[in-house]
Design a protein around this nucleic acid. Structure first.
Lengths: 135, 135
DNA sequence: CTGATAATGGAAACGATTATCATCTTATCC
DNA sequence: GGATAAGATGATAATCGTTTCCATTATCAG
């Protein structure tokens, strides 16, 4: 099996620990939170390595990456490789993947009308989940 | 500087210089770019002050604020106070305000179905404008 | 086992933004 | 007109998430 350079081919202890941590975290977390989670589990993984892996995984589409209101980057293991958006709880970080065909169509239409090309879109929904709503 | 008295509500020299600069910039710019533009015009306005004003204006709804792919915050004078979104050129920063009733309705529907409350949404479109498309 | 090479991680660098605080403006009162 | 209080300004330092550096360590093929 030949892999292109720069991709993670070697199965390292750190990569697995990170994968395990990601799998256990239910919602979006910052790189630093993930790093803390690893430390909590007794796994020594450098912060640099966490960032590095997260970046690669995100490029590969294995994790979703969003930005919260303060500009911090949050990551989450993603269930599907199909394009989707998120409805994330502002309070606990838990999130739901939502299908957004309507939005995609809207984006394309709007872009075409304005003569724009290579259009990409960012759509994120933040709110309070049923639990955190206290209802 | 011989300014007529009684204009205290309208602000200071710096505030006006900033307003003028914003009015002349066609697209989204970072605070630092706006600061540079002011310096170019010969106006001495501290970077701190630029940030301070931008923040206030943004809270007032007088300027729109978005975040680009690298996480930098961009500002633009906004034409209307009505809720809207932007289709921004990745290359030159010029942008078009687009109406997004469809998106709002979609966001509300999705949120309601998931039981989320206090839902807020972020929707930004980035692409290449007709000019930068090279067409 | 051994050498080649990729991966790691602590420390330093970075860059946008924010906080600090002394100084300068402006407005109001006398 | 001048004193004075209130507020705005801005150079500098501090913050903080993220990246870069680079010496060290781990992994894999032969």
């Amino acid at each position: 099996m030949q892999q292109p350079r720069g991709t993670r081919v070697r199965g390292t202890r750190q990569a697995e620990a990170l994968a395990a941590a990601l799998a256990s975290l239910p919602g979006f977390c910052s790189a630093q939170e993930i790093h803390a989670e690893l430390r909590r589990r007794g796994e020594h993984v450098g912060l640099t390595t966490v960032y590095r892996h997260l970046q690669v995984l995100s490029e590969q589409g294995s994790v979703d990456m969003i930005r919260d209101a303060s500009g911090e980057t949050l990551y989450r293991q993603c269930a599907t490789t199909v394009h989707h958006h998120h409805l994330t709880c502002r309070s606990c970080g838990r999130s739901v993947e939502v299908e957004g065909r309507v939005v995609e169509q809207w984006a394309e239409k709007v872009a075409a009308e304005a003569g724009f090309t290579s259009v990409d879109h960012t759509v994120e929904l933040f709110g309070l989940c049923p639990v955190c709503s206290g209802g």
